[in-house]
Design a protein around this nucleic acid. Structure first.
Lengths: 127, 127
DNA sequence: ATTAGTGTCATAGCTGAATAATACACTATG
DNA sequence: CATAGTGTATTATTCAGCTATGACACTAAT
């Protein structure tokens, strides 16, 4: 299956928004390609152990954002437009970097320190 | 005042937990030092425009975690133990780095790419 | 003693998120 | 046509978070 279902949900954020994020990441990774069909509402509900209504709400939000579209009786599909996917990819990367810098600054951690820590981890992985 | 109050709360996470995080960051930055008195429940409630009960809940959580203590009739204070503060600092730094690596991997962004992006930003700032 | 400022507790009410259980319309397939 | 699998909608219920309000005990200062 294309959607990671391993980890539990964060109890402190709405599940339907976490499903939205999960699908977005799958699209960015290419696990869900343009035109691909998403799991049906009922399928994904079972996989994630949530209510079908919750998945439905997530899918509505994805469609509202233009990332997916619906064919009644058939299912939900990833947008055909690769440009939209690329835009999403860049947006999420920028947002991630922006957030980490912001949060680091709030605990007196400079970009330099951030980089050094990441380099250490990279070098450990290499060994 | 020692606590940043500029930005609004994230509507998707409990306010009391966001207050907990806010206080923790102030402690790590040194804006709140060991032994320092926190704003009173009512004071902070007004500053953050929330209900005093919500601040109270946040303060209870901070005390439960051993970061603050209470003197009835006097207020809440930051723990006297600098080791506890240092431990918190290290924990939050580690957690931040761990999270960014995790989230990056979920959108096919390697540690290398992360570092390169951060370096670009650092160099821009230097100019 | 009185007063003002603390933390603390209790009750009630509101709202959004999530669940549970149905039902209905559409589409493809046999 | 019948069936199974789609999305969609409705209603009811539960729960956590938050607010509003009031009250009480403790502490320090006047």
């Amino acid at each position: 299956m294309t959607l990671i279902l391993s980890d539990r949900f964060d109890e402190n954020r709405p599940i339907y928004l976490q499903i939205v994020e999960k699908v977005k990441r799958a699209i960015i990774r290419g696990d869900l390609k343009p035109g691909d069909r998403l799991p049906s509402v009922r399928e994904l509900a079972i996989m994630l152990r949530v209510n079908p209504n919750t998945v439905q709400r997530a899918y509505q939000e994805l469609e509202r954002e233009g990332l997916t579209f619906t064919r009644r009786g058939q299912g939900n599909f990833v947008t055909q437009d690769p440009a939209v996917v690329e835009e999403l990819r860049e947006k999420m990367r920028r947002e991630l970097v922006r957030r980490v810098i912001q949060e680091a600054s709030e605990i007196n951690m400079s970009v330099d320190e951030l980089i050094k820590t990441l380099e250490e981890i990279r070098n450990e992985q290499a060994s």
